[in-house]
Design a binder for these strands. Structure first.
Lengths: 94, 94
DNA sequence: ATAAACCAGTTTACAACATAAACCAAATGA
DNA sequence: TCATTTGGTTTATGTTGTAAACTGGTTTAT
C-alpha cells in the first residue's frame, strides 16, 4: 500500500479546487474561479501565486473591457502533478 | 455544486494515512502505525492526539511485555468522517 | 551494580501555511 | 466630485506541521 507522498502544493483545498476547475475548462479568469470556489479574493490571489510559482499554472494579465483581467490555465506540469496527486490520494481512500 | 468542504482533521497526510490504516485493520498499535506510515514518533504522537480529540479514534494505553503500548481504533464517528471525506474529495478528482 | 543502549512515547519550539482584513488603483455612477 | 464598484494585491495574525529534545522506564553488557 505504501501511502505515497501527497504533493503539498496540491494538498490544499483551494489550490486543489482551482486545479480541478482548470482541468475541466482549460482557461478561466479570476472572477470565474472566485465564484466557483467561493474563496475570498485575497486567498485566491495568494493561492494562484503559489500555483504559478510551482509552475502548475500560467497567469495572463490583460485588460478586458477596461478592467484588469487575470486569466489562468494549467501548464503541462500542472496536469501531470494533478494526475499524480489523484493517483496518490486514491491509495488513501480505500 | 462541487467542492464540498474537506474535513480539516482528515485533510492531512499523516492523519489520513492513520485513519485509512485503521479502516482496514480495526485495531493497531503505535509502532505498527509508525512503520506503515513512515512517520516520526513525535509527529505520530501529535496526530493521534488530534484524531482522538476529534473523536475519530479511541486510544487504549496498556503495557505489553513490560513496555507501554498504545493501541488505536476508529470510532463510529471516525468511520463516518472518513466516508464523508472520501466522498467529498472525489468531487475534486474528476 | 553501574553504565550504555534501547523502547515507547510526549512535549516543545519554531518554521511554514492559510486566511481574512486592510489596502490600492482605475472605472463608473450619482 | 464624491462615492461605489471592479479586480485584484499585500499584510497581519492565528493555525498547523514537524523535528528535536525530553521523559520514564527496560534490557544488555561489564
Amino acid at each position: 500500500m505504501a501511502f505515497a507522498p501527497l504533493d503539498p502544493v496540491l494538498h490544499n483545498q483551494l489550490r486543489l479546487a482551482v486545479v480541478s476547475l482548470l482541468v475541466g475548462v482549460e482557461e478561466a479568469d479570476f472572477t470565474f474561479i472566485l465564484e466557483k470556489t467561493g474563496a475570498t479574493r485575497g486567498n485566491l490571489s495568494v493561492q494562484l501565486s503559489k500555483l504559478k510559482e510551482a509552475g502548475y499554472i500560467r497567469v495572463k494579465k490583460t485588460f478586458k473591457e477596461n478592467y484588469p483581467n487575470t486569466s489562468c490555465a494549467l501548464t503541462p506540469q500542472g496536469i501531470t502533478a494533478f494526475e499524480q496527486y489523484v493517483a496518490a490520494i486514491k491509495e488513501y481512500l480505500g
